[in-house]
């Protein structure tokens, strides 16, 4: 214990920041470690992730010393360790395969995002009253709850996230605000950022005559 007490004044210096280590009764400072900003793993585990090439690039650019540590020739030969050569080759092959798969998946996701539609629907409630439902915002990474809150404060009307008949989440705003919402999306106000206007369509839903 006394040795620890002696260390503590020196220890925070390499640890740089002490976000959670108020000095008084010598808590042991946390180990500061770096996570890869691409795959969120500690960089030594990037090789097992699905984005090794991008991780490598990132590490080389931002932390060249660590890059040398993990990807220099010495490191590569020593890390094979007890693993047999065939197993190592297989591992590398698998990693490459995994990476290709991940890239394909990301591409597909992007395509899907670009193709997905946001529908602003004006629904007639009775003759002069309407609600507006917005569907498909989540495909563009919009937090529906926050968006609903934004609408309700902007229009001073009720706005909520509800499940529609198909079981998808949508935002329902009281009152006919379809044009205003379209404008907001065009302007990218608040959380509604980054939605291409071409993907937005405004439709109207009339109540069927004699329906219930």
């Amino acid at each position: 214990m006394p040795s620890k007490k002696n260390q503590t004044p020196a220890a925070p210096a390499p640890a740089a920041e002490q976000s959670e280590g108020p000095p008084p009764p010598d808590p042991v400072p946390p180990v500061q470690l770096l996570y890869c900003s691409v795959c969120s793993f500690p960089p030594e585990y990037c090789e097992f992730g699905s984005s090794l090439t991008r991780c490598k690039e990132w590490l080389k650019e931002n932390h060249p010393d660590l890059f040398d540590k993990y990807y220099s020739d010495d490191a590569l030969t020593s890390k094979v360790g007890t693993l047999s050569l065939e197993a190592q080759a297989k591992l590398e092959e698998d990693t490459a395969k995994k990476e290709a798969k991940a890239v394909a998946k990301a591409d597909a996701a992007l395509k899907k995002k670009l193709a997905s539609q946001v529908t602003i629907k004006r629904i007639e409630r009775n003759k002069r009253k309407h609600v507006t439902s917005i569907h498909g915002l989540e495909a563009f990474g919009v937090d529906l709850k926050k968006a609903a809150k934004q609408f309700s404060s902007k229009f001073a009307t009720g706005s909520s996230v509800t499940k529609n008949l198909q079981g998808h989440d949508e935002i329902v705003v009281q009152g006919d605000v379809s044009d205003e919402i379209l404008e907001m999306i065009e302007a990218g106000a608040g959380v509604l950022k980054g939605i291409p206007v071409d993907n937005v369509e405004v439709v109207e839903e009339k109540k069927k005559k004699g329906g219930d």
Binding site: V31, T82, L83
Partner: peptide
Amino acid sequence: HKYPYILPKVGVDRGAI
């Protein structure tokens, strides 16, 4: 990761990762 000493350690070989 921040406080690595709080649990006892075991290790696995590279093939198991």
